[in-house]
């Protein structure tokens, strides 16, 4: 038991995930496979976004259907800063985090006045607004998007120029993101989020305002999603409104549901699975994701019913 719970500690999980990715990267590096190094960078970036969404959905009970928006804002932060000659990671990453967190906090302040399906719809609507705003930025490529000025530099060095450098950064950020969000989940703050997910009124009647906690959770998850977007922009060296497309938000939810929303690491599992499937069969058909979506929704419904039975069955006196 004690051993199990130590393995489940945020530090142990972040370390295991980081080591797993590093091992895969080492293999790709030895084999000199730029394809796999690029894919691993992308996978780690998508996992970071999925982990931050898992934090919202699984821990805070906030089902955002607009998670692509803060991801895209992080990507645009890289593009726009680059156009102004700013490419330093130590500036660009905090900028991406701050811009995405600010967007999530501002839209969240309104979205949090709604619940359930309305929350899903309003987050989707805000993401669509971000999409159209991006498409209207003609100085930055408008609909078509545009190539970034160049990959970010680290303390002036161009170490992200090669894919293994970028993959290392993405894996490092994923590890830190998992660790920090895991610690937040285990903290008193995380406990309040989980209690409010179960029964918001009850938390308030016990003396805690839930609004502020949830707003902070949205801002934090949005900021982490912004980091993911900054990584994706560097990987593709191209930014367009499609980063914020609604089906990107849907795919993030599929990742979380597929890996299991009960634990943050589910986001990593889902992101890895979806990326691998996409690489394997995405070249043949674009419609496989529709099938995957149906499978995931079906599984979620079945599991939801099982959960309901457990709760109802356990409440007998």
């Amino acid at each position: 038991m004690a051993r199990m719970s130590r393995l489940r500690s945020p530090g142990a999980i972040a370390l295991l995930v980081t080591l797993g990715f590093l091992a895969a990267l080492a293999v790709a590096y030895v084999q000199d496979s730029t394809y796999w190094m690029a894919t691993l960078a992308r996978m780690a970036a998508l996992a970071l976004s999925a982990v931050s969404l898992s934090f919202l959905v699984g821990q805070a009970g906030l089902v955002s259907f607009g998670h692509a928006a803060p991801v895209g804002i992080g990507a645009y932060a890289v593009l726009i800063a680059g156009e102004f000659g700013v490419r330093e990671v130590m500036i660009v990453l905090p900028l991406a985090f701050a811009a995405a967190a600010l967007f999530s906090a501002l839209t969240g302040a309104i979205a949090l006045r709604t619940r359930g399906v309305y929350f899903i719809m309003i987050t989707l609507a805000f993401a669509q607004m971000a999409f159209y705003v991006a498409a209207s930025l003609s100085a930055f490529g408008g609909d078509d998007g545009m190539a970034i000025a160049g990959r970010s530099t680290f303390l002036g060095e161009r170490i992200l120029r090669r894919d293994h450098g970028l993959a290392l950064l993405a894996i490092g950020l994923l590890g830190v993101g998992l660790f920090v969000l895991g610690r937040v989940t285990a903290s008193k703050f995380g406990l309040v989020l989980r209690a409010a997910r179960d029964n918001e009124t009850r938390v308030r009647a016990l003396g805690l305002a839930t609004y502020g906690h949830r707003l902070a959770a949205l801002a934090l998850a949005g900021g982490v999603a912004g980091l993911s977007g900054a990584l994706l922009a560097n990987q593709a060296e191209f930014v367009s409104p499609s980063y914020m497309n609604w089906h990107v938000s849907g795919q993030a939810i599929v990742m979380v549901a597929l890996g299991g929303a009960g634990h943050l690491v589910g986001g990593v599992i889902g992101a890895v699975a979806v990326t691998l499937l996409d690489e394997a069969i995405g070249h043949y058909t674009e419609y496989w994701k529709l099938g995957l979506g149906l499978v995931v929704v079906g599984a979620a419904l079945l599991r939801g019913r099982g959960l309901l039975r457990r709760i109802v069955g356990g409440q007998h006196d």
């Binding site: 008193k188 406990l191 989980r194 179960d198 003396g207 805690l208």
Partner: peptide
């Protein structure tokens, strides 16, 4: 202590006590 108890079902006993 409300009618019908209404504890937080997805928290452990200790988490229920600490959360609020």
């Amino acid at each position: 202590v409300p009618e019908g108890r209404q504890i937080f079902p997805r928290l452990t006993v200790e988490e229920n006590l600490v959360a609020t």
